[in-house]
Design a protein around this nucleic acid. Structure first.
Lengths: 227, 227, 227, 227
DNA sequence: GATGAATGAGAGTTCATTCAT
DNA sequence: GATGAATGAACTCTCATTCAT
């Protein structure tokens, strides 16, 4: 409620410059602010625990706007999910693994997984929440259905190339390898809170993260190159 | 507040008397029924999404009993968490890894991790939810603070033995190895919903699970034995 | 709940002495303990704010006993009210004002009012609560209906005597005088909390009470002796 | 939490426009309606006995609005208390006692006390309830802390003037005099229910009230003028 | 496009009271 | 006479959502 007073409004004078262009920008800005605030709220409290009031307040927007742009809390949740998930897949697709040397490609992918988790902790929490609900929202998403999951195909190509040149052992399942790559980084970040509590020491310090990153690479490289 | 932990009426021995003398009023039974129902509810909907009415109904108990025994929804949640988490750690401790051959010990632990995840899917969801909340409840738990985390010590002993007899590579960090072992199984189960959606194929069929179990063992064994 | 463990039970051995007498005493003791605890609870929180659990606990008795002896919360409240109110009126009647010199009689009664309020602060709160509810419980009380309110008659006799011997002014209404006598002491104690807050200084210190007592006497004596 | 105190829409002036333009959505009107309904409910049943549903219904408002404007039942209670208490003190301050002849000033104040009690019986019940709770809410009130209690100072000035011109006896404590003035009227109204029951005759008829008012003046005037 | 006021359904929690032993 | 377990009604409070402007 209080935060609303800090909202940035264009001074009325700017309306002179152009009559129609600016309001559209404002609309988009509000939309993006709502999405950003919602991402924080949903990723820290889950769908059920999130509060639309908090989202609106954090976005310096009116609660009514939330419904104006997104229709409902659940639809907003889906929009957040789609955006975060889509961005990740998009970035992943940009890696162009097949252009790399097989060993480099695997290492790159592992490091990417780690770095992306590190840089986008919200998506970990979002996915955790969505999985708890059986991915019922993602399943309904049209946008995500359309996202071609070519990454496994790329990975398969890399594995084939590596097997041919003798770098890799034969018979590696690209899907399970992909899952393991994800797992090693994802779990470290997703469960850091309980792990730190259980082992009574902080696991996500800068030094620890560096260690973990190397460890992830090590585990995967050992596996793919094992004879 | 509840002091319920001090109530231990009707030892199981009394069941010997006869099957028909099922008492209508049994504190411990009601308590356990509530815990069981709460575990289902919390693990499928999270703390915020869970409904105390549903828990009471599923436990065939009065809603009031929930407060009688556990004080509040949140305290019940913690009780569920403590029980599930404690049971896991307890079982883990019973593995007696140090009595095994190092290679067998590692394999046993990986398989245990997989099998336990498979058999206790609720704890995965519970941990996912708890991590989303920053483990704030587990941190407060006195019971868990007291659980000695000797498993990493055992693992260290196993690694030392394996290193000495030449089975294992040197310099393996037992904590990160433990995390990786957990990660490979946990992530597969915890994220199966979104993974299945993303890759558009069911990942938790019996056949797939068998494959995954072998894969997990393979990855870890490759790592620890890599020169 | 916790307090219950401190309950004093007669050792079983004492049962040898006499077979029937002791249990009755215990029953009466429980009854009295409940009444005492209830008086504290009702006088500090009112009828609605009082909690039967608290009363039972403070009485070191089982909640069920409360219902066994008094039937309901409201009946217990009435019992408390009757006891406190009856005791006050009983004591008052014992003053034997008519045997005293008129001036002494008035002074005695004022001081008695003050001292009784001071010594029995609960009754002030009980009466305040009962008045808020329009005295609906006291009105129903059979015991109080039977209490003869001869005090005003005594007071009238005193006033007559004082008027005759020239000590008192004529035409004093005994009922209003009685109300004023009560008011001066009662209000001082009943409203001490808000008065202390409003005037930002403690009004019920020992020194202040002494002053107030003298003031009450002074006001009433001035009135009755004024020409 | 509510921040409702900063809302002051629709000054009374707007009523000039026309009687028919009664708006359906009027924040201040809803607020006042809730306050008024709450005053009735709290003064007849106390804080614990009052029901928020009843308050909302009596205010012809939604229950949710109560929380929207006041945050909680207890905060609403405090708002009611502050308003009633503040109004009384404000009116009192407006008496301008020091501009009157000392005898008139005292008589005026006594009569004011009586008339205000008579006209605002709710505040008597509110204060009774608040005193039962040890004034814990009023103590927390910031608004009341700021109310300068200059009345006692005025009274002191009046007493000094009256002492100088020979009307009053010397050595009268203004605070205790003030308390006694209040007591004589307050107690008569606050305890009328139990008094009427005890003496088995109605004490608050129009005729009785007239008598009582004169009696109160009489008692106080006798005291201050007694030699 | 934006806002404060309003809402009904339902959430968690508490209460006085009663049952079975 | 005494107790722990159990209950249903009712209470305070919260939520996502919509209306009127």
């Amino acid at each position: 409620m209080a935060g609303a007073t800090t909202k940035l409004k264009k001074p009325a004078a700017s309306a002179k410059a152009g009559p129609a262009a600016e309001p559209i920008r404002d609309a988009e800005r509000t939309r993006q602010a709502l999405l950003a605030a919602a991402e924080v709220e949903f990723s820290t409290k889950g769908l059920a625990g999130a509060r639309v009031d908090v989202i609106a307040e954090q976005a310096a927007a009116n609660k009514r706007m939330l419904y104006y742009y997104f229709g409902s809390k659940e639809d907003l949740y889906l929009a957040v999910l789609e955006r975060a998930y889509g961005a990740m897949r998009e970035t992943e697709r940009g890696l162009n693994l097949t252009h790399l040397d097989p060993l480099d490609a695997i290492r790159t992918l592992v490091e990417f997984k780690f770095d992306y988790c590190q840089a986008h902790k919200q998506i970990i929490a979002l996915l955790a929440g969505e999985n708890m609900l059986g991915a019922k929202h993602l399943k309904r998403s049209k946008r995500l259905r359309d996202m071609n999951l070519s990454l496994v195909d790329s990975l398969r190509a890399v594995l084939d190339a590596g097997e041919k040149n003798g770098d890799f052992r034969p018979g590696i399942d690209p899907l399970h390898l992909y899952i393991s790559m994800s797992a090693l980084s994802y779990f470290y970040f997703s469960n850091s809170a309980t792990l730190s509590t259980a082992f009574d020491r902080p696991l996500v310090s800068a030094a620890e993260q560096k260690l973990r990153r190397a460890h992830c690479v090590d585990v995967i490289m050992s596996y793919v190159t094992a004879k």
